[in-house]
Amino acid sequence: MNINNNNNIGYKTYLAVWCCLMILTAATVMAAGMGFGRYGSLASVLIASAKAGLILLFFMHLKYETFVFKLMLLAAILTMAVIIGLTFFDVGFRDGGR
């Protein structure tokens, strides 16, 4: 049993991921400058999530971990989704949905 078995990621992969992260950063700054309004904030959250995904999958090795790790993250994300969803539900309908 060798703990190094599951890791054959090369320098090139890391560099490629870093390049993608830089491109996405440039994209989010440019998109913000264009003034898409409401869609602008949606775009920035989506781009941020793509960046977070890249970091989680490659830099944090989630792609190469066993299913248990992915399930753990899924549970955490679902918990956050429930908290966020219920809070919006509450806030959105306060004062008769002002």
Binding site: T28, A31, A32, G33, G35, S41, S44, A48
Partner: peptide
């Protein structure tokens, strides 16, 4: 996430 939330409100 902090970056767009504080610096990039359009």
């Amino acid at each position: 996430y902090l970056f767009p939330v504080f610096y990039l409100i359009s």
